[in-house]
């Protein structure tokens, strides 16, 4: 009835329509896994790790043995910075001790000790539209979907896919990543999520709250993923709209995502702490 060519053309049109509808559905849901058992991470992870290790080896040789011109200046600056840090560290220790004493007095719950796993970044997102990284730790190292990824500078992202030896994390500068945050100075709440230009924005921030350029934003701990008090970024721009409900707040993350090499994964974030403690008590 129909020619072979017509059937072929119709089949292609139907296939394209199905793919586009699937894409439309998955795009609205934010990040969704392909459900293909992480075949990409499983096959390409070892090769990405080898390539990264080899490049880092040559990079280290260059920076440690050849490119030492600015080392002396950097050494002086670092010594001065170390002196200042030691003084601040001493003050922090004193504050922590007094905080512990006061908490005991008020019978408040002590802060839980976080368990970390260090991981190396072995790959980055192939597209410039999305922000994700591949890590060299997986299910065998205790990682699972939804664990927070951090660095000493601040929050990095969330684990999104895990294979046996490797995992993929979505960075906070990705549009699909959101964290419940608050302004450290005023404790005003908002939701921090990624923007399209390597920055973040604070959504649902009410204009009635006091906010200034340079204010530090920390995690509130209310999302059940990130522990409270982790540094996220610094306010760089605030726009109050007369007609709008919320203010537009642009945030510069503390972490330099272009130079991300190692990260820490929190193995016992707030939502899992109770169950972990129950298990430990039972043991």
């Amino acid at each position: 009835m129909f020619s072979k060519r017509t059937v072929f053309a119709v089949a292609i049109i139907i296939a394209i329509a199905i793919l586009i509808i699937t894409l439309a559905v998955t795009s609205r849901r934010g990040y969704t896994s392909m459900g293909t058992k992480n075949v990409g991470l499983f096959i390409f992870g070892p090769f990405q790790k080898s390539a990264t290790n080899s490049l880092n080896f040559f990079k280290q040789i260059w920076y440690r043995y050849f490119f030492l011109v600015s080392t002396s200046d950097a050494n002086e600056k670092l010594k001065t910075a170390l002196d200042i840090s030691q003084k601040m560290n001493h003050q922090c220790l004193e504050a922590e001790l007094s905080n512990t004493r006061l908490r005991k007095l008020l019978h408040l719950e002590q802060r839980k000790k976080l368990k970390f796993r260090a991981a190396e970044v072995i790959g980055k997102d192939p597209s410039q539209w999305y922000e994700s990284i591949v890590l060299d730790k997986g299910r065998s190292d205790g990682l699972r979907k939804g664990l927070p990824v951090i660095m000493h500078e601040g929050v990095v992202g969330i684990i999104m896919d895990v294979s046996y030896k490797y995992s993929k994390a979505l960075l906070i500068i990705d549009r699909n990543c959101s964290i419940d945050g608050l302004i450290q100075r005023t404790r005003a709440p908002g939701v921090v999520s990624g923007k399209s230009d390597g920055l973040c924005r604070m959504k649902y921030f009410l204009p009635k709250y006091d906010i200034h350029k340079g204010d530090v934003i920390i995690s509130s701990g209310l999302d059940g993923i990130f522990p409270k008090g982790l540094r996220i970024g610094e306010v760089s721009e605030v726009e109050h709209h007369i007609s709008g409900f919320f203010s537009d707040v642009t945030v510069i993350p503390f972490v330099n995502f272009n130079k991300l090499e190692e990260v820490l994964i929190v193995l016992n974030p707030p939502e899992h702490m109770n169950s972990i403690e129950e298990t430990e008590d039972a043991q």
Binding site: I16, L19, I20, T22, L23, T26, S27, R29, G30, Y31, T32, S33, M34, G35, T36, N38, V39, G40, L41, I43, F44, G123, D125, P126, S127, W129, Y130, E131, S132, V134, M160, D161, K168, L170, D174, N176
Partner: peptide
């Protein structure tokens, strides 16, 4: 499939 796995893009984007 591999690119969709390695990227943070919605499932099926590279395939499509």
């Amino acid at each position: 499939v591999v690119m969709d796995n390695l990227s943070g893009a919605p499932a099926g984007l590279y395939l499509s």
